[in-house]
Amino acid sequence: MRTSVILFSVLFMLSATSCATYVESRPAKVTVIKKAPKHYKIVKIKGKRYYFWNGNHYRKTRKGYIFVRV
């Protein structure tokens, strides 16, 4: 009887705690640039295409270009 009580309390404590951390579900505010300037360059990094101008890398999406950190 005593072992079942101890086992039950250990299982309860393990199920009450979680290893998961909180994940933000809100999307980040992203500024979309509709048109790239004429002097942009296409750069491939690890097989992915990025657009480079003004010292920043951008990724093309359906709505325009968004800033990314590479």
Rank of each mutant, 00 (worst) to 15 (best):
R2L: 11
T3R: 07
S4K: 15
V5R: 09
F8Q: 15
F8W: 14
V10S: 05
V10P: 00
L11T: 01
L11P: 00
M13F: 14
M13I: 13
L14K: 09
S15L: 14
S15V: 11
S15Y: 11
A16S: 10
T17A: 11
S18L: 02
S18M: 05
T21N: 08
V23M: 01
S25P: 00
S25H: 02
R26P: 09
P27S: 15
A28V: 15
V30F: 08
V30K: 12
T31V: 10
V32A: 12
V32Q: 07
V32R: 08
I33N: 04
I33P: 02
K34P: 05
K34H: 13
K35Y: 13
A36C: 07
A36Q: 04
P37F: 11
K38C: 03
K38G: 03
K38H: 01
K38S: 03
K41R: 12
V43T: 03
V43G: 03
V43Q: 01
V43N: 10
K44A: 03
K44Y: 09
I45D: 02
I45H: 00
I45L: 08
I45M: 00
K46Y: 12
K46D: 09
G47Q: 06
K48N: 15
R49S: 05
R49E: 08
Y51S: 05
Y51H: 06
Y51W: 09
F52E: 11
F52C: 06
F52H: 15
W53N: 01
N54M: 05
N56Q: 07
H57K: 04
Y58D: 00
Y58M: 01
R59E: 15
R59K: 14
K60A: 09
T61R: 13
T61S: 12
R62Y: 04
R62C: 01
K63C: 04
K63M: 04
K63Y: 14
K63A: 13
G64K: 03
G64T: 03
G64E: 09
G64M: 04
Y65A: 00
I66N: 10
I66K: 14
F67N: 14
V68L: 12
V68W: 10
V70G: 07
